[in-house]
């Protein structure tokens, strides 16, 4: 990393932190855009293979778990997905009532019992609300809007779009900081590369869980452990890279004045 330019009020005096800024120019944009394009191309080239891996692993895992599954072809954008129909256990009205009751007890209980940190309580309550809400809907309507095939299709489509969106999204992060070209490509590539095995493992787990528990957990799984979970590693990678970057900055005495 090179930091020739100190953009503080005087070039020869280390600026107070309130005046600091970073030497980012057209170079950051000019290196980020090709980096994003390269990674997008890689995603397009590898998407079919990764999605096949996702379907195959989930299919074999469901067979191993004793959940009968039947794949089918689904052309989507530039790939052919292989979602599958799998057996989801049926929940009877008594089970639904029990789930509703348990969720209500959890929500009320955590509102009264405040020994657990508030964010954890709210997170548990959100899960309970989604599961309880699904149970109520199932109780009233008899079924959720998504059956196993539609859910499987939704998961695969979401995974593909997530891989396509991540490089652009991470590019917006990367352009803000004066990373080197290799760091930029590494950052963008790593976030997508991480997301592929995450998507495979998650999809497999979801099918195994739904096969055992029934559709009650479907909404919760998709909302809490679906796309939301893809964002967390992005931020983790950003934080690791920023720590590295901040350490490098600290060693630039002229820039930060740490004589």
């Amino acid at each position: 990393m090179s930091f020739r330019l100190n953009r503080g009020i005087h070039h020869d005096i280390a600026p107070h932190r309130s005046y600091r800024n970073l030497p980012i120019g057209a170079k950051a944009i000019l290196t980020t855009i090709p980096a994003v394009v390269i990674v997008e191309l890689l995603v397009v080239l590898c998407a079919q293979w990764c999605l096949n891996a996702m379907s195959n692993v989930a299919f074999f895992a469901s067979r191993y778990e004793g959940v009968p599954a039947r794949p089918f072809a689904d052309p989507f954008l530039f790939v052919t997905l292989h979602p599958m129909t799998f057996d989801i256990r049926h929940s009877d009205w008594l089970e639904l009532l029990v789930v509703m009751l348990v969720c209500a007890i959890i929500i009320v209980g955590l509102s009264v019992w405040r020994e657990i940190a508030a964010p954890v309580r709210f997170f548990i309550n959100l899960n309970a609300l989604l599961i309880g809400g699904a149970a109520i809907f199932l109780f009233l309507a008899g079924h959720l809007g998504y059956d196993s095939a539609a859910f499987s299709q939704l998961m695969l489509r979401t995974a593909l779009l997530t891989w396509l969106v991540i490089p652009v999204f991470v590019g917006f992060f990367a352009v803000l900081f004066p990373f080197s070209i290799m760091e930029r490509i590494g950052f963008i590539l790593l976030t997508v590369a991480w997301d592929v095995p995450l998507s495979i493992v998650r999809y497999t787990c979801f099918i195994a869980i739904l096969g055992k528990t029934g559709p009650i957990a479907m909404t919760d799984l998709y909302f809490i452990f679906g796309p939301l979970l893809d964002v967390v590693p992005v931020v983790c990678f950003l934080s690791i890279l920023l720590v590295r970057f901040a350490r490098a900055l600290q060693s630039q005495r002229v820039l930060w004045g740490s004589e």
Binding site: R17, S239, V243, A246, W256
Partner: peptide
Amino acid sequence: EVLDGGRERLYLLP
């Protein structure tokens, strides 16, 4: 945090 000279604190971003 980078401007403020923070380092390890940045691990808390997630």
